[in-house]
């Protein structure tokens, strides 16, 4: 089980990083989304895996629970990463609408022009 989770995290990270290194905004956003999944699951897994041990206190005597702290952290992380993705989407959309290209790299010609100024 641990091996499966770890390999899934690894695969998602690799995919995320590869897409992050693409040259257009949309793949970069997808890459970031993949990377967020990987990071969230990674954080979650730092509480160690457990099955049928939800951190909901039982009314019926002793029970063991999984580590709730990473879960709480990941919960907010999921929501925040949504906010981050949304901002990124808006920025890339704006960039595309303003400049008619969704390439993320600044043209070398443009930077030279700026430097000349």
């Amino acid at each position: 089980m641990e091996l499966l989770v770890a390999s899934a995290i690894g695969t998602m990270t690799a995919g995320g990083v590869y897409l992050l290194l693409r040259l257009r905004t949309f793949p970069v956003i997808l890459g970031l989304a993949l990377l967020s999944y990987a990071v969230n699951v990674f954080l979650f897994s730092s509480g160690r895996l457990a099955i049928d041990m939800s951190p909901i206190l039982s009314k019926y005597g002793e029970a063991s629970y999984t580590d709730p702290l990473p879960q709480a952290l990941v919960l907010t992380a999921i929501v925040i990463s949504f906010g981050m993705t949304a901002v990124l989407v808006m920025i890339s959309l704006g960039a595309f609408l303003e400049s008619d290209t969704d390439s993320i790299d600044i043209d070398q010609a443009d930077t030279d022009e700026d430097a000349a100024k």
């Binding site: 641990e2 091996l3 989770v5 770890a6 390999s7 995290i9 690894g10 695969t11 998602m12 990270t13 690799a14 995919g15 990083v17 990987a38 990674f42 897994s45 730092s46």
Partner: peptide, 9 residues
């Protein structure tokens, strides 16, 4: 990916 996966494992 290998680094993160290995670390997590």
């Amino acid at each position: 990916g290998a680094g993160v996966g290995g670390l997590s494992y």
